[in-house]
């Protein structure tokens, strides 16, 4: 009973998160401007971290947690660097 409840909830959650990542991918591809793409990439990182935690619940292993932590940190560094580039890149132009 519990297995069925958790299993179906996790499956639906995974589908929703993949749809969310699809929305973010569309925004990355379409833009229209560079800051939109960076924002969408940041959203993608967060969605990926949530997806990994959900994977962890599904497989019952705590090792996905480490991956989620890494994705969170990488997302922060990537977005901070990209925003900094957006500010500096135009000055050089």
């Amino acid at each position: 009973m519990s297995a069925a409840i958790i299993g179906s909830a996790v499956l639906i959650a995974q589908i929703m998160l993949v749809a969310a990542m699809g929305c973010a991918t569309y925004r990355i591809l379409r833009g229209p401007r560079a800051q939109d793409r960076v924002l969408a990439l940041d959203t993608m990182y967060v969605n990926a971290a949530i997806l990994l935690v959900v994977f962890g619940i599904r497989s019952g292993s705590i090792y996905y947690f480490e991956a989620a932590l890494l994705i969170t940190l990488l997302g922060f560094v990537a977005t901070a660097a990209a925003s900094k580039f957006l500010m500096r890149g135009e000055v050089i132009e």
Binding site: A9, V10, I12, A13, Q14, M16, L17, A19, A20, M21, C23, A24, T43, V46, N47, I50, V54, I57
Partner: peptide, 12 residues
């Protein structure tokens, strides 16, 4: 799990 994933989807 459903609420969290739903909010992430709404945000996207």
């Amino acid at each position: 799990v459903l609420l969290g994933a739903g909010l992430a989807l709404v945000g996207s």
